[in-house]
Amino acid sequence: MLKVENINVYYDNIHVIKNLSFDVNDGEIVTLIGANGAGKSTTLKTISGILRPKTGNIVFENEEIQSLAPHKIVSKGLVQVPEGRRMFQNLTVEENLEMGAYTLPKGEIPDMIEDIFARFPRLKERRKQVAGTLSGGEQQMLAMGRGLMSRPKLLMLDEPSMGLAPLLVDQVFDIISEMHAAGVTILLVEQNASMALQVADRGYVLETGKIALYGSGKELSESEQVKKAYLGG
């Protein structure tokens, strides 16, 4: 479904992503794990078109997308929930969700919003509140709800568990599994490697812009190298 082929990404002169290749098949949960600064967020930003690879291709559903504008990529069903939730603080909960559905025809939006509210009842209670007044957990629910509003085929989640209390982390991962069960393919970037590898079909370990290791979720969570570096074992 998504194929990243030998991409190289630079920030000015700094070579951040080096010949990176990986793929995500239809219906999978794939995770990219790695330490801070390994290039995980950069990879997602490049796929979304915010950053441009200097060389290499990104293919989504048999179409090269590496030179498309970000909004064109979203309208193809490849959507990112950015790191740190990034709510529009001055917009209401409902308006944030409407922003998520920017590429959908207007008539479908009210039904989609009701779907999201059914999934996240807390958001319904707060629909007219501005997003800046929500708690961290509620903001993460809103961020994921907003990502779902565009009916993505592939949803990329950047550190959805970051900064959340353990109970909420479990909740976030439950929602990821639910979304997956509902037919959304997921590319999950996480520092919380143990949780990510539990839900993932396959995983890639990113180190300084390169794939250091890959395998099924189970294989990686049992690998000595991963245990030592990322699972605190």
């Binding site: 970000p70 909004h71 950015p82 001055n90």
Partner: peptide, 18 residues
């Protein structure tokens, strides 16, 4: 709404398809 969203956070607005 897009104007307000872009003025608050242009990058995220782009990720929403604006």
């Amino acid at each position: 709404r897009a104007m307000r969203a872009v003025s608050e956070d242009a990058e995220t607005a782009q990720l929403m398809g604006t």
